[in-house]
Structure formats: C-alpha cells, structure tokens
Amino acid sequence: MYIRFHGNYSSPKTEEPYGIFVVIYHLQRDGKLSESDNRTYFETKEWFEQHLPNPPYYEDNSAIKAVIWFKDNPKTRVMINKLEPLITIAAKYETELTRTVAVDPPGIVVYEDDYQIAVIKS
C-alpha cells in the first residue's frame, strides 16, 4: 500500500496535486505562518532532510515529472507520524490536505527506496 498527503491544487510541472511539504512551504513562503509555526515547519523539514532519502533526480534538476508516495511499512509509519506538525499547521491555516491511499503503485515507478516510491503517470 502507498500513502500520499497532498493539497487541493496542482503543480504545473506534474499536473498532480502538490505534496504536503510544498503546500506548507507555500504558506511559509507567502509569510502566512506565525513565528512558532515557521520554526515548526523548518524543524520538521530538517528532520525529514536528515532521515528521508532524497531521490537523485531532485539533485540534478531533472525534468522528470514524478510524484512521491510513502510506502506503508513499519519504517515509514514513524515518518508519517512525524508529519503531524505539518498536518496541524495546514488545519490551523485552513489549508486543505488530503490523505490518499493506493493499493498498487499509482503510476510507473521511476525511483524506490525503503520509505518511498516516485511515480510518473502511466
């Protein structure tokens, strides 16, 4: 099973809804977060940067139009719990987040590690 947390507006690059990290980044970028929420956003983001592998195509600015989904396993359940501060921020600022679940990969898998897959439309 695969899990994705996303907003209700889409990326022009992927034509898929933006993921939770970008949705909260948009609030931060637009100056909507309180000082405390801003700090929480950066602390949570830093934790994920230290613990979640970064797909290689992120680093080479590839034109690939992939979307990331968490795998449902014991390792990722810890990570999904670590998303709670971002989910709380979204609710506080009345920003819609959706938790979508897929039994099978929701596209063609172009990257995979222990925690996540990246898929493109099939």
Rank of each mutant, 00 (worst) to 15 (best):
D60K: 12
A66E: 09
E84G: 04
D30E: 15
V23D: 03
E43F: 07
N61F: 13
E35F: 03
G107W: 04
I80L: 08
A90S: 07
D113V: 06
K75W: 08
E46L: 14
T98Q: 14
A91C: 02
K45G: 01
V23P: 01
E94I: 05
V23G: 01
H51K: 14
E96Y: 04
Y25E: 14
I64N: 07
Y57L: 12
D114M: 09
E84Y: 11
Y93R: 01
D72V: 12
N81L: 08
E96G: 01
V110F: 05
R99Q: 10
P74S: 11
F70C: 04
H26Y: 13
N61E: 15
H51Q: 15
W69I: 08
T100V: 09
E16N: 15
D37I: 00
S34C: 02
Q50S: 14
K65Y: 06
H51E: 13
V103N: 11
P56Y: 14
V110W: 03
D114W: 10
E84L: 03
D30A: 14
P74E: 11
L83N: 03
R29N: 13
L52R: 15
L83K: 03
Y93E: 01
R99H: 09
P53M: 06
L52G: 03
N81S: 15
K82N: 06
S62E: 11
K45Q: 12
A91N: 05
F21K: 03
I108A: 06
E94G: 01
I68L: 11
A90E: 08
K92D: 00
N81W: 09
P56R: 14
K65F: 04
I117H: 04
R29C: 00
